[in-house]
């Protein structure tokens, strides 16, 4: 609240220019354009990835998030798979997020 007020007084210095939004949106859409993968294929990939992970750890499948990222015309698949617990030591309370690129 105070921060917001201060930054409003100090002018628009802290405002995120619309170009940053443009760049973020473009990068995301281009990554998907470049792989040209259909939503159906992407869904199959998501499901296969989930079942592969589920073999080793307990995951929260609903909280999974996968996307493509690109830099310098090369692509990366970024998957975020929330881990509820490991199969061996079954402590289930903590929710951790695992990231694999």
């Amino acid at each position: 609240m105070v921060f917001e007020f201060m930054s409003r007084i100090l002018g628009r210095k802290n405002r995120l220019g619309s170009k940053d939004l443009a760049k973020e949106r473009l990068k995301l859409v281009l990554a998907h354009d470049r792989v040209s993968i259909s939503p159906q294929m992407l869904e199959r990939l998501r499901r296969d990835l989930a079942s592969a992970c589920a073999k080793y750890v307990d995951i929260d499948e609903a909280g999974m998030n996968i996307r493509f990222d690109s830099s310098d015309r090369s692509l990366a698949l970024i998957a975020s798979v929330p881990v509820i617990g490991s199969k061996q030591s079954t402590h289930t309370s903590k929710k951790r997020r695992g990231k694999s690129g």
């Binding site: 619309s18 170009k19 760049k23 473009l26 990068k27 015309r73």
Partner: peptide, 18 residues
């Protein structure tokens, strides 16, 4: 507009298109 941060600048476009 570039100065205001309201237009993609030269580096942004090169960075994206490579």
């Amino acid at each position: 507009m570039v100065k205001r941060g309201d237009m993609l600048d030269i580096d942004d476009v090169i960075d994206i298109l490579a």
